[in-house]
Design a protein around this nucleic acid. Structure first.
Lengths: 190, 190
DNA sequence: GTCTATAAGCCGATAGAC
DNA sequence: GTCTATCGGCTTATAGAC
């Protein structure tokens, strides 16, 4: 069946692209991991660029949903819940297979191709996160929630990068403390 | 002359690697841009991996010195000077050729090769920045300067990533405001 | 230390059969 | 929709002359 095959291809591509980076994964490798021939692969995806976009698109909703579960599942107020995202991410980052944020790493690799289909998917994903955290922040009556939401996201993406660079998950917790502090300051000046 | 040729190779590699990413630049392209043959290139560098490490190594000191100049050249106290780094970076980011932080982008591309010589150079560079900003912070009598220094660096690296992703330099200023706020909070609780 | 020339293999993508 | 087979080009790296 077509749909099943296509999903299997995206699943295989997702693991390989996330684990090794876009440029280091060949279409041959994707086809082999998915258990199809290259001809089938190119039947479902016009090009590698399209497959990369499909990879990120498939990670969009699950990724956002995970952050939202972590936020909702943390006891306390807005500052605690925000920090909860970072603490959960710190736990994830300790797994050996963790390789940072697939969106950011793909963006870094495709930085000189602003028209690449995957760039659009990645930018939209980060905007969605920004919008969601803004909604959470403004529900607590904070003015200019966009500003605070962006600062939280900046800390989150910085934590992805630095944790990966040093292979030291404690940076996630440090970033979480910074976010906690910024939220508390914003709440106090309501 | 050997030294001059080697420098010319690193200079050419630096421009290409930063502009297009490691994987997208061939050794042929580096040789052509440097005006040498590939045989000469491989005389000076054992492999492409070594050349990548030399590229980052060559950016280490100039990069740190630039941040230090921006810091020292901003009027005001610690919070203002810290924010000054972000504001200057925001100006740089508006240039069309700006492609984020070469260290972070290289690291993102080589994430699955922890033993790569360039990874070590990149990690050391970021540690040097962390140490320097820690010294500046502790000179103002802040306890646990490491913590604040790391938070500033997390914001900086987050700003690199998000500014590049959205091609929107205003994120640099937002990150600068967050750093300003964190420094002020730390100063107040001295 | 720099040159010309080329090895040996991998790359994305396609042709044509069924 | 999936297969076998392969194209033309580009990749890192090396051989041997000077």
């Amino acid at each position: 069946m077509a749909a099943v095959t296509k999903e299997r291809i995206v699943s295989a591509a997702s693991k390989l692209f996330y684990g090794e980076g876009i440029g280091r994964v060949s279409m041959d490798a994707v086809a082999e991991k998915a258990g199809v021939t290259k001809r089938t692969l190119y039947y479902h995806f016009r090009s590698k660029d399209d497959l990369v976009a499909a990879y990120l698109d498939g990670r969009d909703q699950p990724n956002l949903a995970l952050f939202q579960r972590w936020f909702a599942g943390t006891n306390g107020g807005l500052a605690d819940k925000t920090r909860g995202i970072f603490l959960n991410l710190g736990q994830s980052a300790r797994h050996p297979k963790w390789k940072g944020c697939g969106f950011l790493r793909t963006m870094a690799e495709l930085a000189n191709m602003p028209g690449h289909p995957a760039m659009k998917v990645g930018a939209e994903h980060k905007k969605k996160f920004e919008q969601w955290i803004r909604t959470m922040v403004e529900a607590e009556g904070i003015e200019d929630g966009l500003r605070l939401a962006r600062q939280i996201m900046l800390l989150l993406d910085g934590a992805f990068a630095v944790t990966l660079l040093h292979r030291d998950a404690s940076y996630m917790e440090t970033a979480g403390e910074a976010a906690y502090s910024l939220v508390k300051t914003a709440l106090a000046s309501r």
